[in-house]
């Protein structure tokens, strides 16, 4: 029941997170920033724009991105296997990238290609995260992870750190906002969407916030206070990093993910395995 509610309200929750984030970001840049409800104003605005598209397939992929992200959210909340939820996320990436590829715009194609590089960077780490959670709690089942006696964060500090490393890639935050790269490719995959179609993409990004922060929440195990603390901590951490780094290029991102984050996760898993035996 809780899962269904969370799924249904995940765009709203994500919108709030995004709104708060924009304010936090503005304050970190010594600006006043927009109101907290700004994402919803944007939502209303985009809804009232005249629809325009490059072609039907491209526009429909924007909507599919939203739907499949929401569906991935539903699977994360109501399914029982974390791995499956992670793989469902790939479907939403498929919708986004295929849509972006389908138009003959170099920015869009470069954005899609970079988005794929994001996938290559974060996906192994996220899968290793699921595996390590299984290792510690003995189950891929999200409900079981959330009720297990063990608090995963204490056994998986390195996995948590590497997840903090990939969160900017998942959420398109600096230093890894490579796929969006507003000053280079003007938003990358979302560039050709406008009006209501862009709204779908814009809102799907909010759901991704909930999706990602929920995975952070899992690190608290049955200790929900700790989970909430971790979410808040990672939120502040991600925003601080976002505001104090320049954007890197995709090769550097790949190197960072592959030669630092993945070994870090594997090391942690290795230690847990050795410790258990």
């Amino acid at each position: 029941m809780m899962g269904l509610l969370l799924t249904l309200f995940s765009p709203i929750i994500g919108g709030f997170i995004y709104g708060v984030e924009r304010v936090v970001k503005a304050r970190m840049q010594s600006r006043q920033g927009p109101p907290v409800l700004q994402p919803f104003y944007d939502f209303v605005k985009l809804m009232q724009k005249r629809p325009m598209m490059v072609h039907s397939f491209h526009a429909s992929m924007g909507i599919m991105y939203f739907i499949s992200t929401w569906f991935a959210m539903a699977v994360l909340m109501m399914g029982n296997d974390l791995l499956i939820a992670i793989f469902f996320h790939v479907i939403s990436v498929l919708a986004l990238t295929i849509g972006a590829f389908s138009v003959r715009s170099s920015y869009s194609i470069m954005g899609a290609m970079r988005e794929l590089m994001h996938v290559v960077s974060y996906e192994p780490v996220v899968i290793l995260l699921a595996v390590s959670l299984y290792l510690v709690t003995g189950s891929f089942d999200i409900a079981k992870i959330l009720t297990s006696d063990i608090t995963p964060i204490f056994s998986l500090p390195l996995v948590f750190i590497s997840f903090l490393g990939v969160m900017p890639m998942l959420l398109h935050k600096s230093p890894f906002d490579i796929a969006e790269a507003h000053q280079e490719i003007v938003g990358g995959p979302d560039i050709e969407y406008s009006g209501p179609f862009y709204e779908a993409v814009y809102t799907a990004r909010w759901i991704e916030y909930v999706y990602v922060y929920f995975i952070v929440f899992l690190f608290g195990g049955s200790n929900y206070f700790l989970g909430t603390f971790l979410v808040v901590f990672s939120f502040i951490f991600i925003n601080a990093v976002d505001n104090s780094t320049a954007r890197l290029d995709y090769k550097k991102m790949l190197k960072f993910a592959w030669f630092i984050l993945i070994p870090l996760s594997m090391l942690n898993i290795f230690f847990v395995v050795v410790g258990a035996n």
Binding site: M28, Q29, S30, R31, S174, P175, D177, A181, Q183, E184, N243, S244, T245, A246, R247
Partner: peptide
């Protein structure tokens, strides 16, 4: 330069 490097904060401080 900072802005196009994706370092928005530095741009804001420079402008400030």
């Amino acid at each position: 330069v900072a802005e196009v490097c994706g370092y928005e904060n530095l741009f804001m401080q420079s402008v400030k």
